[in-house]
Amino acid sequence: MSQESIQAKIRSNPKFAELVGKRTRFAIILSLVVLVPYYTFMFLVSTQPQIFAAKIAEGSVITIGWPIAALIVVAGWVLTGVYVSRANGEFDSITAEVLKEARK
């Protein structure tokens, strides 16, 4: 079967539209979940640095800035795990179906 007809079949398969839609939405949402807090953090760090000077607990010397920055790093990594588990599971199985149906 020619490459063009496989492509045409993929294009017309509603599952392909579903795959693209789902994955695009998911990627955009996760990107925003990373970038919005990050840029909020960067903005506040440069304009309102005193916010980050608050202590994590009474009598402690550690400011909330340290755990917040650590949280951005850890959360960024956890989100990559969230994306990979869904992409390698759900999205890849839809992809496999779409490809299989197109090659029929």
Binding site: V34, Y83, V84
Partner: peptide, 16 residues
């Protein structure tokens, strides 16, 4: 630490 966060943050975006 802020600098380190800036160097780190590109990675999740590269994945997504």
């Amino acid at each position: 630490f802020i600098y380190a966060v800036c160097f780190f943050i590109g990675w999740p975006i590269i994945l997504f």
